[in-house]
């Protein structure tokens, strides 16, 4: 214990945290490798996956629609405020659409999903572990990775891109309403600018790729944290917090990397 004091103690602690982190990462990768054979559930028991998409999707849908609407309206006001200085307010539709489709849609949806569905996923799996439900399944010769974890992981992975698309669509519609009714812009110009300026291969695909990656990472972190949680109430609560923190940071970090590659090319 005395060795944990002073400078040496600090160095020790840094070392321990680093080792813990690396070990954790390793466990997460091994866990993922064990999870992959369970993906066959899509073929054998598609209903399990569909049910989970419904659960996670519905869980997050309301918050995604409401946030999307507000973000769209804010973008319209802020964008107009800047564009009007250069007499470029006719490009508002383009500005809003590009911001949402390329950046805000995928990222904000991912953050909302992590907070709402990701944490719920971790808590659910963690509690199933704490109450011996997963152990019980194993003793009934049912693989919990295949029966419980894989459907939830796949559902999360699929749900995020779908929700991101809804987020962007709602945001654009809300921006349109504000632009036309409040700011007095012409509706036709709003859409026309968007139509000519947004590229399917570049902008929409770029956003889609981002949200697919975010969906994968968040679902992975959420199910791993739940499965790796200490089977106590404290363990589950810590795991839930960790899911939100790590997946939010992962989303922002990955977003920077992917944006850099997409804008500057490989």
């Amino acid at each position: 214990m005395d060795q944990d004091r002073g400078v040496v103690g600090h160095i020790r602690r840094v070392g321990r945290y680093t080792l813990d982190g690396v070990a954790r990462l390793g466990r997460a990768v091994v866990f993922f490798a064990r999870l992959v054979p369970g993906f066959s559930v899509v073929v054998t028991r598609l209903s399990l996956v569909v049910q989970q998409i419904y659960m996670t999707g519905v869980l997050t849908l309301v918050i995604v629609v409401v946030s999307g609407a507000f973000v769209g309206m804010i973008l319209a006001l802020q964008g107009y405020n800047t564009l009007v200085r250069y007499d470029a307010q006719s490009s508002l539709g383009l500005l809003v659409a590009l911001s949402l489709v390329r950046e805000l849609g995928p990222v904000l949806t991912a953050l909302l999903f992590a907070g709402r569905a990701g944490s719920a996923l971790t808590a659910e799996i963690g509690l199933m572990k704490a109450t011996e439900q997963l152990a019980g399944m194993e003793m009934m010769a049912v693989d919990p990775l295949k029966r419980v974890v894989a459907p939830r992981f796949l559902a999360g992975w699929v749900a995020v891109p779908l929700l991101a698309a809804i987020f962007s669509a709602v945001g654009i519609l809300a921006a349109y309403v504000v632009a036309v009714s409040d700011l007095g812009l012409d509706g036709g110009v709003f859409w026309a600018q968007m139509q000519s300026g947004v590229s399917v291969t570049n902008d929409i695909m770029g956003g889609a790729i981002k949200s697919v990656v975010f969906g994968l990472v968040i679902s992975w972190i959420a199910v791993f944290e739940g499965y790796d949680a200490r089977p106590t109430s404290e363990g589950v609560s810590r795991a839930t917090t960790r899911t939100v923190v790590s997946s939010s940071l992962a989303v922002l970090g990955l977003d920077f990397i992917m944006t850099a590659f997409m804008l500057r090319g490989l």
Binding site: E132, Q133, A135, M139, M140
Partner: peptide, 16 residues
């Protein structure tokens, strides 16, 4: 083999 073994957990371990 486990299909031929039943186990009763202390908590019941029912699927909630």
């Amino acid at each position: 083999l486990r299909r031929r073994i039943g186990m009763l957990f202390q908590s019941g371990a029912l699927l909630t």
